[in-house]
Design a protein around this nucleic acid. Structure first.
Lengths: 231, 231
DNA sequence: ATTTTATATGACAGTTTTGTGACAATAGCT
DNA sequence: AGCTATTGTCACAAAACTGTCATATAAAAT
């Protein structure tokens, strides 16, 4: 699952770190925000694959922010799961047309949380098949841990595997080095930005064997993009 | 039987632990869930070989869930055995076209339960011959605890036997050390992860005598995989 | 055309992961 | 009890992978 990034917006530190721990346990990349302002700042940087949002936040309630996000074109397709306290809130929310994609009620088990996340990701089309990632004639099977390019088995290292699967699941968009480090390596690693170049290079070398080199493009000044079309 | 995993969905703790005990007695791997939500969460994680489902569950009845599962492509072939209270329910169920593969009526003897499970597994094609596991020209006889590779008798230790039978019944997929410990050694043992390496090594040594070494593959950073090699 | 800035690339050394032999503890058997 | 096969662990070896640097190229800016 390491190709997915989740933004956790939760003001209560204890709960937040619990959430983060669970998500990391399941190999998600996690971004954290304590309030909506922080969350917005992160969104300007990196777009996650899903937001896990506490319904009760200081200053602005989760559903207000949800509404705002959902009315913004660039975030319309960003799935949001609301985290609500049990009981009375749940009922209100159920009735509200706030545009969230799902909600979980505290307390919940890690497994429940994960399965809802997977369900939402699947529903939103980010996961077609949990174990298979396809892009043109490149097929990655996360369960069997195999990469095939036009039906030929390709040998890749762990990092190359993660990087490629990230690109395949996030095609056409440009990512800068920081974003790639965050999403592929994880948020709390300190690694030289230029290291990304080297891994791009390595991936290109592999792709080149199958004449797919030009799919991994350099966007000078901005980063890299995986895409069949060239600008 | 250690190659089969059964998911038990039952809300009554006493009955559930009884079921679990019986199944473990007969060397099944058991997953437990107290309700449908938990069960769903488990399904997202691991797909069992069979579901043992209480017909009466809180919130949603077993047969409703059965219907839902059976209408989902990825679970259509997952056999389900309903556990029902005696008498009146059984008749209703018999008439219902709920898609379950069989049902047992409480109270039942362990032997009855096991034989129904075996019957369903056999019928669903998961077992051809309960005592035999075949993979290419490797044949394991679980009853006599014997292994043959291209008709030659092979001497293996108990652990090697379990490990090999696990791989033969779960080919192609990559398992990490923890998963292998869970599945082959059991869930609540505390054993060093690296011990798995050593057993892999021992198994490879045996396989090497028959030029089958390359079927047991290392997937660096992720675990091991049993698969006929393709380049 | 020259300078400046950004990216590509090869080499390499440190680190991480896996392979392997040895050994002592244990379990099973007679 | 005595014997043997098995098993978990460890220490070290081997291999694979990764991050960084230095240098080469390429693209913009002046």
């Amino acid at each position: 699952m390491s190709q997915f990034t989740i933004l956790v917006v939760e003001d209560e530190p204890a709960i937040r770190s619990m959430l983060v721990m669970v998500l990391q346990q399941y190999d998600f990349n996690v971004l954290e925000a304590g309030d909506v302002t922080e969350a917005q700042a992160i969104l300007d940087e990196t777009v996650p694959d899903l937001i896990l949002l506490d319904w009760m936040l200081p200053r602005i309630t989760g559903d207000e922010w949800t509404r705002r996000l959902k009315s913004n074109d660039s975030y319309r397709d960003l799935p949001i799961i609301l985290v609500t306290a049990k009981g009375e809130e749940a009922d209100k929310i159920r009735g509200l047309d706030i545009g969230a994609d799902d909600y979980v009620t505290k307390p919940f088990s890690p497994k429940e949380l994960i399965s809802r996340i997977k369900a939402v990701l699947r529903r939103s089309g980010k996961i077609h098949d949990l174990t298979q990632i396809k892009f043109q004639d490149i097929v990655m099977d996360t369960e069997r841990h195999r990469v095939n390019i036009s039906d030929k088995e390709v040998d890749v290292s762990p990092t190359e595997f993660k990087l490629l699967s990230f690109f395949l699941t996030h095609p056409d968009k440009v990512y800068n080095r920081t974003q790639l480090l965050d999403q592929v390596w994880g948020r709390n690693v300190y690694i030289e930005e230029r290291t990304v170049d080297v891994h791009i290079r390595r991936l290109r070398k592999i792709l080149a064997k199958y004449q797919r080199e030009e799919w991994l493009q350099t966007v000078r000044g901005f980063g890299y993009r995986f895409s069949i079309k060239n600008s």
